[in-house]
Design a protein around this nucleic acid. Structure first.
Lengths: 357, 357
DNA sequence: GACGGGGGTCGAATCGATTCGATCGAATCG
DNA sequence: CGATTCGATCGAATCGATTCGACCCCCGTC
């Protein structure tokens, strides 16, 4: 049986061994470690001494989890490669908020990028709860798999789904407010630079209507814009990054001046920053000739990006809400969903529409 | 016993229940799921049908781990808050490299930020191996705790330590080469903008000698520079970010022209980018009046940062090497350390030393 | 027709702890 | 002084699977 592959555990002392050495029963030794229940001080120190002699690291987490029915692990499920998922500063803030909410609870974060062909098999890890972070595409399959595991599921900005505790953001309404600002400044229309719309992640023109079931956030934000500019069109990017923003910006702006939009609504600040770079390249003045609205409220301090007009979203609040929802679910309390709101911050990238030449 | 806190598991069917329903023994049902061993096609489908009827999600990962002695989880230990650790693009690339190396092995990444007062308790999670990512400060305590767990430990750019499989980078030599480029361009000295030096993370002047036992990478890179410019001094930043680079840059450059360094060696590209911003603010021309060297080889595409002269490090290679080291250790093979090298890439931010006025 | 072999199935031990109820001695109280 | 209670400890069941060896039956072979 010892094929060398089990070497991980070779020679690891067990609680029983420690108990034997200390001259107590395993149950008492367990009590001494967990701190629960009454154990005399002398016994406790005898057990700890025996543990030290054997170089015992404490109760095996796996065995403990089995017995307790808790693993102390919360999965963060994302549909991106890690590199992409965490390049988005908003996701990082969310992660941080989660950790903050956990506080003293000893919960580890298991990051599960559902990418590749055997995607769902990764969900075969021990977990006490799952947080869906950047999930839009295969939500149904993922949620089903998790539901079968009887694990609380928290969805951050996911399409509503039975049994998923929702942490929502007012994506649609916030986008509408951004668009309204532009309209009030005299803009008659706006082009959209959208977040990735489907799992394919290819860059493409936005159609007149985008089907749901793809990236929920992108769809919602687009819908908000179209409440104000019904014919708004634009480009769906391959990722939320400055580089893709530059590409989209060039595609929209590097055209005869008459065809050029007077305003661009980017669905993230990284994309907006890219659009600004593209405008700069092409000699288009912002906000004199072009207004740009972002989304997120990323801090670009010191990196030369002008202060964006953008919708500031409470990203770490999202994480905190998700973390609290996990704790509540784990405590057997009622589901604790949350709905957060974004705030329009007027920066230096929006201004009155230029009169068309 | 059912205090509501165990609700996670309430009503979850077990393999035994599935077996009973399918009219087979638990052992056979197990075989049907694991695919190991001989099971007739009819039996297998009967078991799977029973599982579907009971909405059984497959064998409990915790119980399986206990029996198998493998949890399928690899811990990534960092000494930063997640937000800070992952803001560094190099760490992201490493993470991605790890995932890439794992390939088809179903291994999840458990992210453990060792921060806060009860730091080490987080290591009480199930794990098959641990990768030390941004660890410099409390290496000894961390390594001890992991060693007691009898878990393979992979250290990425950590100070050498017994029992830690090292994935190293030529930090010292690479920095030396960067400094030599500057010397060959006529620079007589260079100021250093260093990565954080201690866990305190406060910004401060570099002393003439920095003690080891703190951030290993920063020390090594500094030592490399001092092989060429023995009296090099500068500023230790609070974090590797553009914003902190700007602050450090201002502190070094906003002085009477005679006191101003002709060259700055930043220990990361983010810091270097910040220095460039500071120089721009102060009207200092790069590279005419100031040469700047970075480290990492971050791609700033499209964000207006000029092409840095920098030491391009193979970040995802580091991750891949770490991942392979994990796999080797898990397979019971001999330790597989790695030593990677960086390459000097000459960009547009270095030039001949300006003759002092 | 007896025997060997192999595929399919099952029993039972095991992984390493936790925890409930029982036990036992000592201290408290009436 | 006997009864009661409380604190400390122990035994044994349990968590949910995996896996080794045994067993059985059917088939092919000599």
């Amino acid at each position: 049986m010892d094929d060398g592959a089990t070497s991980t555990r070779a020679g690891r002392p067990t609680l029983a061994a420690v108990a034997a050495r200390a001259g107590v029963s395993p149950s008492t030794a367990s009590l001494a470690f967990s701190g629960t229940g009454p154990v005399s001080e002398s016994t406790r120190s005898r057990v700890l001494a025996a543990a030290a002699e054997l170089d015992y690291a404490g109760p095996d987490p796996v065995a403990r989890s089995l017995r307790r029915g808790r693993s102390g692990v919360v999965a963060v499920v994302t549909e991106d490669r890690l590199e992409d998922a965490f390049r988005d500063p908003m996701n990082l803030a969310v992660l941080d908020g989660i950790g903050e909410a956990f506080g003293d609870e000893r919960l580890g974060l298991l990051v599960l990028p559902l990418v590749g062909h055997d995607r769902l098999e990764l969900l075969d890890s021990a977990m006490d709860a799952a947080i869906l972070l950047g999930c839009g595409t295969d939500l149904v399959a993922t949620v089903d798999a998790l539901r079968r595991r009887r694990v609380p599921i928290i969805g951050i900005e996911t399409a509503p789904s039975e049994g998923v505790i929702a942490i929502d953001l007012d994506n649609r309404d916030a986008s509408r407010r951004g668009a309204e600002l532009l309209r009030s400044l005299g803009h008659r229309d706006a082009a959209v630079v959208a977040l990735p719309l489907d799992s394919g992640r290819e860059r493409r023109r936005l159609g007149p209507r985008e089907s749901a079931g793809t990236a929920f956030v992108a769809i919602e934000r687009l819908a908000g814009v179209r409440l104000v500019f019904p014919h708004a069109t634009g480009i769906a990017t391959a990722s939320s990054s400055v580089a893709d923003g530059v590409r989209a910006g060039r595609a929209l702006l590097d055209v005869p001046a008459g065809d050029r939009p007077t305003a661009i609504i980017a669905q993230s600040d990284l994309l907006a920053a890219g659009v600004l770079v593209a405008a700069d390249e092409l000699g288009i003045a912002v906000p004199a000739q072009l207004s740009v609205v972002g989304f997120d409220g990323v801090r670009f301090d010191g990196s030369g990006v002008p202060e964006l007009t953008t919708l500031v979203q409470p990203a770490s609040e999202k994480g905190r809400a998700a973390g609290l929802a996990v704790l509540a679910a784990l405590a057997g309390e009622a589901p604790r969903p949350a709905a957060l709101t974004s705030e329009l911050r007027t920066g230096a990238t929006t201004g009155p529409a230029a009169s068309r030449p």
